[in-house]
Write a protein that binds this DNA or RNA. Structure first.
Length: 289
DNA sequence: AGACGTACCTGACCGC
DNA sequence: TGCGGTCAGGTACGTC
């Protein structure tokens, strides 16, 4: 499912329900997602208090007072649903509180907290995965050790980007998908950022001028910030609805707009779609040169 | 090292 | 209605 803004939104949605809570019970409903669950996964979570949540790239990290961190990657279709403490769910047919719905298809992990609330992980395609590791060793985790800077931090800047791609002859679209270059971007936001910065996705990465890289850096930050803001406002609606955290309504300029008129001011191009490293790229051939 | 391609999995959708 | 092909927001791993 998700790129950085969606993961950030999910994490922020989980925070108020999880921080300071103790994990009373963990139901692990299958042996693996994309990879096997870590050894004794439920036991290692149970009894622990949740100290804080954070995000690195597209990973959610949950810091526990046991000294371990619970790492979650949502893959393509991972979602969390919150059954907040005190909510009464009628669908189970049982009267009274804590009467939660039965597990739905593709619910793989069900966490029960000490206030009676639940956090349910659902993942249709099972490209997501989870791990547990000593919090002190976070920087050494194989999934986290080799990823690039957070795009919203100062560590992602023109100099860093120019340096990271100076030897890369591949198309800029494919290069920006590389999590070692910059963390957290995915297919949609790269299409959007290139559209906003007028860069043709086919351009060899090392052929882009410093001036245009500088614009790209600014635009990436802008696109992600806008999306996080949209996700934040959508969180209010999740509370009212069924507690599901995941995608939110968002309007794209290029992604998914094949055949439509380019919405860039003063541009009368038509958005086209083609395939790059196995993924769909959407762009406007008229203003993305 | 870089630059590919392939694999992992389910479901939605489209044309016949 | 059914069936096969294609596509989907990600990443690890194999090969050249």
């Amino acid at each position: 499912m998700p790129e950085l803004p969606e993961v950030e939104t999910v994490m922020r949605g989980l925070e108020p329900h999880m921080i300071g809570r103790k994990i009373n019970h963990v139901e692990q409903r299958r042996a693996d997602l994309r990879f096997p669950f870590p050894e004794n996964f439920p036991t290692r979570l149970m009894g622990a208090e949740i100290i804080s949540l954070s995000r690195r790239a597209k990973y959610i990290l949950v810091q526990l007072d046991s000294g371990e961190s619970w790492m979650i990657h949502l893959g393509m279709t991972g979602r969390f649903t919150i059954n907040a403490a005190g909510d009464v769910k009628a669908s189970s047919g049982q009267a009274g509180h804590n009467s939660w719905p039965l597990a739905e298809p593709h619910d793989h992990v069900i966490i029960t907290l000490d206030d009676g609330g639940r956090v349910v992980y659902n993942d249709v395609r099972r490209f997501g995965y989870m791990d547990l590791f000593a919090t002190a060793n976070e920087l050494d985790h194989p999934s986290l050790a080799n990823i690039g800077p957070e795009p919203l931090s100062d560590k992602f800047n023109t100099k860093q980007l120019a340096n990271a791609i100076q030897k890369k002859k591949s198309a800029i679209k494919s290069v920006m998908l590389d999590q070692a270059v910059v963390a957290g971007l995915g297919n949609i936001y790269i299409c959007e950022a290139l559209w906003r910065s007028n860069i043709n996705p086919k351009t060899p990465a090392n052929k882009i001028s410093t001036k245009r890289l500088s614009l790209l850096v600014d635009v990436v930050k802008e696109v992600l910030s806008d999306a996080i803001a949209a996700g934040g406002s959508s969180l209010k609606d999740y509370r009212k609805a069924d507690g599901e955290l995941g995608y939110f309504q968002h309007q794209w300029d290029a992604y998914g707009k094949e055949g439509e008129e380019c919405g860039k001011e003063g541009c009368d191009g038509i958005i086209q779609r083609f395939t790059q490293s196995g993924r769909s790229t959407f762009y406007c051939p008229k203003h993305q040169k």
